[in-house]
Design a binder for these strands. Structure first.
Lengths: 344, 344
DNA sequence: ATGAAAGCGCTAACAC
DNA sequence: GTGTTAGCGCTTTCAT
C-alpha cells in the first residue's frame, strides 16, 4: 500500500495542505474558490488520496470510535442483535465500534478499559448479555452507558428491558383468551435473575386487574432451561383437574419448549388443551417450535441503538433512572381459549 | 479527564521523554540505569500517566487494531463464538478488534473498508455467518483473511468448516450403532448451501465404506428449518416398513428438531425407534431437545481464532487452499441401535 | 482567497 | 547512560 499524504495532493494541486484539508473536510469552504476546490478534488482523486484517521485523531482529539465492553458475547445468542443496534447507529454517525469481550473477568475488564482509553475512544458502552445489576469496573468513565444492565451504585445512564410490562402483556394475552388458571413457570431463585422478579410482578398485576386470585400452587420454579420447563410443567399437568392450569407463562422460550414436551407426554395438545407464552423471542427457536410460540420479545436491537445514541450524544439520558425499553409481544400459535369445560 | 503527557512524566522524573519512552516500553532497557528506570516508573504512577495510543500509532505506523467485517451479526446466533475466538486471540496479542457489520450491502462494505483503512488497522478479517463462496468486495486488501467463507476467485487465506468430514463422522456414528437405512434430511437446492453438497458427500462416503447401497428415496430435501425437517421426516416415516429409515442425519439442528416432532406424531420414540443426528450444535437448542441431540459442532470459536492468528501473522496460511477446520461430533442421547427387527 | 507554521503525543536515530 | 531532534499526517490559527 503506497502511502499518499495530503502533501502529495497539495503539491499536485499547487496549493497548501491547509487548503486541501479545508476543501476535503468541507470546512470554511466558502473561503476557497470553486476552481481551487475543483483542482484539489481532482488531485486527490488522481493520486488516490485516503485520509489518515490516526493523524486526524491525534490532531482533533477525537477518534470517531466507540468502545463496547461486553461480558460473554460467546455464550449467548442474544448478543448479536444488541451489537447490530449499536453498530447501525455508529455507522450512521460515521463511527466505528471497538468490541472487547471480557467474559466478566475483572483483570480483562481493566485491561480492556486501559486499551480503550489508550485508543482514546470517544465513548464507552458497557454491555451485559442478560439483564443484571452490576458492580461497574473501577475506571469506567462517568459517562459510559450501560446496556442491558444497571449499576448497583446507580447514577449511570442505562437501558434495560421493561420486564414488568413484558410480564403484563404476556399474561394479558392469556387472560384475554379466557384463561383464569394461569401458571408462571419461573426461574429458580438461586439464579438471582432480576427479570424473574419483575416478570412475576407483571403476572400478579394482571391477575389482580382481572380479578383472579393468585394461586401460589401455580407459581413454580425450575432451572430456566428446557429440562426445567418440562419438569415444572409436568408437575403442574399432573395436578387434579380443578387445580391444573390451562395456560402457562414461561420465564423464557427454553422453558416453554420444555412445557411443550411435557404437554405432549401427557397427551395434551398446544394450544388446544394448553396455552403457552414464552419470553425472549429467541432466534431460530421460538418461531420454530411446533406450534410456533407466542412470546415476548427482548428488545435487544433497540437497546443497542439506544445505548449508542446516548453514547454519541444524540439523545439525553437521565443517569438516575434506567431507560425501560418496551418488550413487544410476538403473537404466533401457542395461545387459544381454554378447553370448554374450563371456560367461565 | 485531565491529560497527562509523557513530557509531564519526564519533567517529574527529571529525564527526557526519550528516556521515559524507552523505560515504559521496555526498549533498550539495558541502557538505562535501574535507578532512572525506577524514578521514571514512579513518576508515571504519580502523575497518573496513560499512554496515548493514537500518537503512538501515528509514529509507529501500527495501530494494534484489526478490522472484522461481517455480514449480519444480527440475524444468526452463530456469530458470537466466531467473534469470541477472534477476540480472544486479539486480546492475547494486545490487539483490539473493530467490528463492522455490513449486512452484505456493497455500499456498506465499501464504507467499512474505507473507515478501516482510514483508521489504519493492522489487518482485516472478512467474515460470513455461514459457510459460503463470496465475491470479495473490491478494495479488500490482498492479505485480508476470510472467515467461514472462500473467495470465488480464490487466492485468499480462508478458513471454513470441514463439512465433508463432518458428514462422515455423523453418519459413521449411525453406522457404528448398527443402522443401515440412514436418511439424509438435506436442505433444498434453491438455498444453494455449500455445506449441503459437502455433507452429502460425507454421507455417501460412509455408506460406501460400510457397503450400504445408497437409497435415493432416503435423500430428501426440505427447507432447512424445523418445519421442513418435520415434513421431510413425516414423509420418510410413513414409508412402508421395509423402506423406512431407522436413522436420520439432518442438515442442521433445526431440521432435527422437526424430525423429533414428526417421530412423536407417529408415536415413535427417539432414540428407541429412530436415531437422529443433527449439525451445528446450535447454542441453547441442541442440548435442550428431548432427548438431547447428538450433533456435529460447527467450529466457530476455533475458526475465529485461526483467522485472527493468521491476520496477526502468528500462523501461516496457504492462500491457495482454504483451511478446513474439523467439526467434532457431540454425543448426546439421540442415537441408539436400531429396533431389533431391523438389525442385521 | 490562500499559505505558513505550530502543534497533537509519541518513537527512534543519532549525538554526546 | 541519557538527551536532542526530527518527524508520523493532519487541522487550524493567524498572516498576508
Amino acid at each position: 500500500m503506497v502511502r499518499v499524504r495530503m502533501a502529495d495532493v497539495a503539491a499536485r494541486a499547487g496549493v497548501s495542505t491547509a487548503t486541501v484539508s479545508m476543501v476535503l473536510n468541507g470546512v470554511n469552504s466558502t473561503r476557497i474558490s470553486p476552481q481551487t476546490q475543483q483542482r484539489v478534488r481532482e488531485a486527490a482523486e488522481a493520486v488516490g488520496y485516503k485520509p489518515n484517521s490516526v493523524a486526524r485523531s491525534l490532531r482533533t482529539q477525537q477518534t470517531r470510535m466507540v468502545g463496547l465492553i461486553s461480558d460473554t458475547i460467546a455464550t449467548t445468542p442474544f448478543a448479536g442483535r444488541m451489537l447490530a443496534g449499536a453498530n447501525d447507529v455508529a455507522r450512521e454517525q460515521g463511527h466505528l465500534v471497538v468490541l472487547v469481550d471480557t467474559e466478566r473477568d475483572a483483570a480483562a475488564e481493566r485491561q480492556a478499559l486501559n486499551a480503550l482509553n489508550g485508543q482514546r475512544v470517544d465513548a464507552i458502552i458497557y454491555a451485559c448479555m442478560w439483564h443484571r445489576v452490576v458492580e461497574v469496573p473501577e475506571g469506567l468513565p462517568e459517562d459510559a452507558v450501560l446496556l442491558d444492565c444497571v449499576a448497583a451504585a446507580g447514577g449511570r445512564a442505562a437501558v434495560v428491558p421493561d420486564e414488568r410490562a413484558g410480564g403484563v402483556v404476556a399474561v394479558r394475552e392469556l387472560v384475554a383468551a379466557g384463561h383464569r388458571r394461569i401458571a408462571f413457570l419461573d426461574a429458580e431463585e438461586r439464579f438471582d435473575l432480576v427479570a424473574s422478579r419483575l416478570r412475576f410482578e407483571g403476572y400478579l398485576e394482571v391477575l389482580a386487574e382481572a380479578g383472579i386470585e393468585p394461586d401460589p400452587g401455580l407459581h413454580v420454579r425450575a432451572e430456566p432451561v428446557a429440562g426445567g420447563g418440562r419438569e415444572a410443567a409436568q408437575r403442574l399437568l399432573t395436578l387434579p383437574a380443578e387445580r391444573r392450569p390451562t395456560a402457562m407463562f414461561c420465564f423464557n422460550d427454553r422453558m416453554a419448549m420444555g412445557a411443550y414436551t411435557a404437554a405432549l407426554h401427557c397427551g395434551l395438545s398446544v394450544p388446544r388443551d394448553l396455552s403457552v407464552v414464552g419470553y425472549d423471542d429467541q432466534q431460530l427457536v421460538a418461531a420454530e417450535l411446533d406450534p410456533p410460540l407466542t412470546t415476548v420479545a427482548l428488545p435487544h436491537y433497540e437497546m443497542g441503538r439506544w445505548a449508542m445514541e446516548v453514547a454519541l450524544g444524540l439523545r439525553q439520558a437521565d443517569p438516575e433512572v434506567p431507560h425501560l425499553m418496551p418488550c413487544p409481544i410476538v403473537r404466533r400459535a401457542s395461545v387459544s381459549p381454554p378447553p370448554a369445560q374450563f371456560s367461565d
